[in-house]
Simulated scan of single mutants.
Amino acid sequence: MLTVKEHITISIFALVVSAFLGVILGYVCAVNKKSEKWIVSVFQILRIVPSLAFLLLLIPVMGTGFQPAMTALVLLAIPPILMNTVAGMEKVPAFMLETSYAIGMSDWQVLWKVKLPLAAPLILTGIKTAMIEIVASATLAAKIGAGGPGSIIFTGLGLNRIDLLLIGGGIGCGVIHSFRVHPR
């Protein structure tokens, strides 16, 4: 099914890009408190814009298709990753950092061997939240030509056909369910 493949492709690409950017921006915010104020403010303002409005606002700037949908999904997914990365980095106990420097670790070693592993649970929670937002909003990306099960839903709405709505909704729910993390 082409629509499921399109949905999964755009969701995974958007998650990878937003995770990369969100973690880097989160680290910058945790290290430089002046930049935290501005970066977090900008992304929190973007967060209040509804997904569909965000997608439609990008049409005059970028046109329709995969690229504007990807841009919108990435911008919608960065805030939870950014906020959780900042929180995770700030929650690293001071005694762990002091001990790391006391045994002779460099700044990079402290980052890779102490800060990131201890912040990982919160960072991964932000990534999980972002994935939920991406998968849900990627359905709406069909409105600007990005494909996916949303195209079936919008066709069903336009033709007033319940069968298409159920099929598109079923595919969308199946995709969302496949991304759920099941506890063991």
Rank of each mutant, 00 (worst) to 15 (best):
L97Q: 03
L73C: 02
L46M: 08
R184H: 15
T85F: 02
E36Y: 03
L116Y: 09
G169A: 05
L124M: 15
T129R: 00
K33N: 13
A94N: 14
K33D: 14
M131Y: 08
K143D: 15
V42L: 14
C29D: 13
G145F: 06
F154N: 04
A120M: 10
T99M: 08
S18N: 03
F66D: 01
F54C: 08
I8E: 14
V17N: 02
L2A: 14
A72N: 01
S51V: 07
S151T: 11
V23Y: 00
G26Q: 04
S41H: 15
I103G: 11
K113W: 04
K34V: 06
A14T: 00
T85M: 10
G65C: 12
E133S: 13
Y27I: 11
L166P: 07
C29E: 06
L97S: 05
M70C: 10
T9H: 11
C173Q: 07
A136S: 12
E6D: 09
I152M: 10
V31K: 13
A146N: 01
Q109E: 08
M83G: 01
Q67N: 14
I153W: 00
T85L: 06
S178R: 02
S18R: 00
L122A: 12
G145L: 04
L75Q: 01
I8F: 14
G148M: 03
A87V: 05
L15V: 01
N84V: 05
V23R: 00
N32M: 05
P183G: 06
F95K: 09
Q67M: 15
F13E: 07
M105G: 10
F13V: 05
A102Y: 06
A142V: 06
L56E: 02
S151R: 03
A138W: 10
M62F: 14
T9F: 14
K143Y: 15
P121A: 07
L166Q: 15
V175D: 02
R47Y: 13
M131G: 09
V42Q: 14
G26T: 06
V181C: 07
F20W: 11
